[in-house]
């Protein structure tokens, strides 16, 4: 029985790590610009396919649809991660310039539609380039099950968790300990005052979108060996991650990470009870949390002056 609970913990943390990473990426743009990228799901799918493409091009092993296990070996997977991060970061900047900045600071929610539209364009382009069929991606550390006190886990799941935790810890340090982090927090707090203090507000906002999009792309690359890469894979992950972010408090990065992990653990835990009730239980719980704490568990209480 203990092994069963341990398995739930391991499985929940593995998928929760991805949710947390994407939830954090939502938080980064929200705290700096008060906007969100609703194309984050598509960014995940594009990141995964871009990763497969890089592995295929540099390794030349197997076919594009079924890469040989060796294709992800050596320095190829980190290289793929670097390329995906850079390209998706650039896409994030493009997204900010094309779909966010024209509408920022103006009344209405045009940026919601424009980011959704950007995602649809990106997905359609992806379909034209890669086609809609899912593609297998090998894991850099092989596929053999590892045993932890009776619970089984695959190397990729540990990698997902480890990379997510390292990235999140690094970003936490960046936000709290560096001048850049201070600048980002200042922009989040009050862009006008931050600009008066000599902070390049536009650059900080651009950087936030680049970072957020790069995280989504790397998230896609991390999940692909577990779920196989697909342009449609990101929607479900982004929705769960967004729910986790809302539950934890969108304006609190640590809260978002907590929310992501909590959601992953809840999924695995509820499945142990009645799997078909999983989504119902999770979303009822989120509604309940928001009813009691409208800004999420760790969100700052915002007062809108009317």
């Amino acid at each position: 029985m203990l092994a069963t609970y341990l398995q739930v913990l391991v499985s929940g943390l593995a998928i929760g790590g991805v949710y947390a990473l994407i939830a954090l990426s939502f938080s980064i743009t929200f705290t700096t610009t008060k906007t969100l990228n609703f194309a984050q799901g598509e960014f995940i799918g594009v990141g995964a396919f871009l990763g497969v493409t890089v592995l295929y091009l540099v390794s030349g092993e197997g076919s594009f649809a079924a890469l040989a296990p060796a294709a992800a070996g050596g320095a190829r997977y980190p290289l793929a991660a670097a390329v995906v991060g850079a390209v998706l970061g650039a896409l994030g900047i493009l997204l900010f310039l094309a779909a966010i900045r024209p509408f920022a600071g103006k009344p209405g929610m045009s940026w919601v539609m424009s980011t959704i539209g950007f995602g649809i364009i990106l997905q359609s382009l992806g379909l034209a380039v890669w086609g809609p069929a899912p593609v297998n991606m090998p894991s850099p550390f092989g596929d053999d099950v590892m045993r932890l006190a009776g619970a089984g886990v695959r190397p990729q799941e540990i990698l997902v968790l480890a990379v997510a935790v390292v990235l999140m810890a690094a970003l936490d340090l960046l936000m709290r300990r560096t001048r850049l982090g201070k600048a980002m927090r200042a922009v989040a707090h009050n862009p006008q005052v931050a600009a008066l203090m000599g902070i390049n507000v536009a650059a900080v906002m651009l950087g936030a979108f680049a970072l957020s999009s790069a995280l989504a792309g790397v998230g896609g690359l991390l999940v692909a060996p577990i779920a196989s890469a697909s342009l449609f894979m990101g929607m479900g992950i982004a929705l769960k991650a967004f729910s986790g972010a809302i539950m934890g408090g969108l304006d609190n990065p640590r809260g978002c990470i907590f929310g992501g992990f909590a959601l992953g653990l809840l999924e695995a835990g509820v499945a142990l009870w009645e799997a078909q009730w999983r989504e119902i239980v999770i979303f009822l719980l989120i509604i309940l949390v928001l009813a009691i704490r409208p800004n999420g568990l760790f969100g700052a209480r915002a007062l809108d002056k009317v």
Binding site: T4, Q7, V8, I226, A227, M233, A268, A271, A275, Q276
Partner: peptide, 20 residues
Amino acid sequence: NERFNVNDTDMTSQLAKLRT
């Protein structure tokens, strides 16, 4: 009698119930 989603990647919870 257990169910899972078409996109699920981890069915260990459901399988644990079958084993129990």
